[in-house]
């Protein structure tokens, strides 16, 4: 075999090897991408989980209503979904929504120490709704209890109004410190 022919064969083999490797790598990437995408879609869809939402009730009480919500595993997502559902309002008679229509969850943060920061926003309303002490207790603890009694990672709640922590919402409860659930019911 001439030296030239040997070089040609060696170059051809090398090209085959590189091309094959490239094909294998690209195919593998495609496969892996398809697998990852499917898992990602499943993770994004989440799962249906049963929660207890705590709504203000007749007689100045707060009562639980069971609710199935589609949520991710992430505690922060669960808190957000629970509060979204809470603010939309109850389904059962005798229960009422804790805040007026238009109040939304502006953001949720969950600290490593178990403190959930819940920012409620009411566009075009600087102040929280006024009310008596029972009304304020119903509003505040419907949120605190719905978060802390459903999400084990959240043991207390700091409430913010339009992004700012206030001493109180309507002149009674001290909101300058984190609140733990009211288990007295």
């Amino acid at each position: 075999m001439s030296r030239r022919a040997a070089s040609f064969i060696l170059g051809f083999a090398l090209a085959l090897l590189v091309g094959g490797g490239l094909w294998w790598w690209i195919a593998g990437r495609k496969e892996s991408g398809r697998g990852h995408g499917a898992a990602s879609a499943a993770a994004q869809a989440g799962q249906k989980v049963s929660f207890q939402l705590f709504f203000p009730a007749d007689g100045g009480a707060i009562k639980a209503e069971p609710r199935d919500l589609q949520v991710l595993d992430e505690p922060k997502d669960r808190i957000h979904k629970i509060l979204d559902a809470l603010l939309v309002g109850p389904k059962a008679a005798g229960l009422v929504r804790p805040f007026p229509e238009g109040v939304v969850v502006g953001g949720v943060l969950l600290g490593r120490d178990g403190t959930a920061y819940v920012d409620l926003r009411w566009p075009n309303h600087e102040e929280p709704p006024p009310g008596g002490s029972t009304e304020e207790i119903q509003r505040v603890y419907s949120v605190v209890d719905s978060v802390t009694l459903n999400i084990p990672q959240a043991s207390r709640v700091v409430l913010l109004w339009n992004g700012v922590q206030r001493d109180t919402f309507s002149g009674h409860l001290d909101l300058s410190r984190p609140l733990v659930p009211d288990r007295s019911r």
Binding site: P56, A57, D58, G59, G60, A61, G94, L95, V96, P98, G131, G132, S133, T134, E135, Q138, R139, H172
Partner: peptide
């Protein structure tokens, strides 16, 4: 001294905190 209000109906009476 305060006067109360509640969400929902049917709440009445006095309480001291």
């Amino acid at each position: 001294i305060h006067l109360n209000s509640s969400l929902g109906s049917g709440a009445y009476g006095t309480e001291t905190y």
